[in-house]
């Protein structure tokens, strides 16, 4: 794919290209032995399906998580979408359009998965527009140069896949199945991001500087995507991790996934020739992992609370598009209702 002997196309670049994905995707969802009791199904690591009885809190947790995931896909179209008209070559333009389309598609799968829990898309979109539900904070950072499209693919999609591969084994069937497909497509996105940076790093001095600058800006926000610390001392502070793990929604702690991500990305940065912006980043032989510096959690909480560079811009854009389209959706509904009535009358 890259026409060189440094990058082996068969070498995994992200978690969706590892055995963990294959194992999750093939996870047995036969459930003929334990009946349909919720606790028994969870204990047997089998899937809960929409018509099964489930605790209200399980349902609410899933609605919140799946909706937040769907919103992230839809809001996530914006930072790269605004580069479609500016992509530097026609090939890049075509790939970028296809990528942003995929994100819209992921949003639709996920809204559909949430709808199986008894809520509709319009209600979820209202909650997004009213600020009652969140999306991934990473999209509150701006895309300043073309290289940001590369850094988003490589780092942000890479981190998202690391989070999502375990979700392919989520206890809730529709979410797990959506994740299996989403991860496969995200894997292409991550590769295209890597390839953008690869080309930039082998280009002109200005292109190399652009790539390095983008990596400098996206590295730390990407690490924060795994969420606040939840192992060691932090584990006692609560949060969603413990209950979500007991329900088979979450499989690994935030810190463990973050470590796996760092371990996977450092060698890729070296191949790219990009210097990751962390002076404390070094291999620890004893742990068998890379050590890395402290994440700025104050910034994380600040952006999460709505005070990031693009929070207002993203929601304003989303609301405007939705409001401007209201008359179109009303017309489609009116047309459908009118013609459904006509069909009934002619049948009667």
């Amino acid at each position: 794919m890259y026409g060189n002997d440094v990058i082996d196309p068969n070498e995994p670049l992200n978690a969706a290209e590892t055995d963990a994905y294959e194992a999750a995707a093939e996870h047995d969802d036969q459930r003929d032995t334990v009946g349909d009791d919720f606790d028994a199904l969870i204990a047997a690591d089998q899937r809960i399906e929409p018509r099964d009885a489930m605790p209200d809190t399980y349902r609410e947790t899933l609605i919140r998580q799946i909706a937040q995931h769907a919103h992230s896909e839809i809001i996530g179209m914006q930072p790269e979408g605004n580069w479609i008209t500016r992509a530097p070559s026609l090939r890049r333009k075509a790939i970028l359009i296809a990528k942003v389309q995929d994100e819209a598609g992921h949003g639709l799968y996920l809204y559909s998965a949430a709808e199986t829990l008894g809520i509709d898309r319009q209600e979820l979109l209202d909650r997004l527009h009213d600020g009652k539900q969140k999306y991934s904070s990473i999209f509150n950072y701006p895309t300043l140069t073309w290289a940001d499209c590369g850094a988003i693919g490589w780092l942000v999609d890479g981190a998202a896949i690391m989070n999502q591969v375990p979700l392919c084994r989520c206890s809730y069937g529709p979410y797990a199945r959506a994740m299996i497909r989403v991860c496969k497509e995200e894997s292409f996105h991550q590769r295209q991001g890597f390839e953008i940076l690869w080309n930039l790093m082998r280009g002109t001095e200005a292109q190399r500087a652009m790539a390095q600058d983008a990596a400098d800006r996206w590295w730390w926000p990407a690490l924060a995507m795994f969420g606040p610390p939840d192992t060691g001392d932090a584990a006692a502070k609560g949060g969603h991790t413990e209950q979500s793990m007991a329900w088979g929604i979450k499989r690994f702690a935030n810190d463990d996934l973050r470590q796996k991500f760092v371990d996977m990305m450092v060698p890729q940065a070296e191949k790219l020739g990009i210097v990751l912006p962390d002076p404390q980043l070094r291999w620890n032989d004893e742990r068998g992992h890379y050590d890395f510096g402290e994440i700025d959690w104050d910034e994380f909480w600040q952006v999460l609370r709505g005070d990031g560079p693009c929070n207002a811009e993203r929601i304003t854009h989303r609301r405007r598009a939705h409001d401007e389209g209201a008359w179109v959706r009303e017309a489609a509904n009116a047309y459908a209702a009118k013609h459904a009535t006509t069909a009934e009358e002619s049948a009667a």
């Binding site: 359009i97 598009a321 401007e324 389209g325 179109v328 959706r329």
Partner: peptide
């Protein structure tokens, strides 16, 4: 048509106009 992506009346239409553009 590429300008419509993220600006369409509904998500399905973001995808559809993206397809036409492609």
């Amino acid at each position: 048509l590429g300008e419509w992506m993220t600006n369409a009346p509904q998500i399905e239409e973001d995808m559809a106009l993206g397809n036409v553009a492609l």
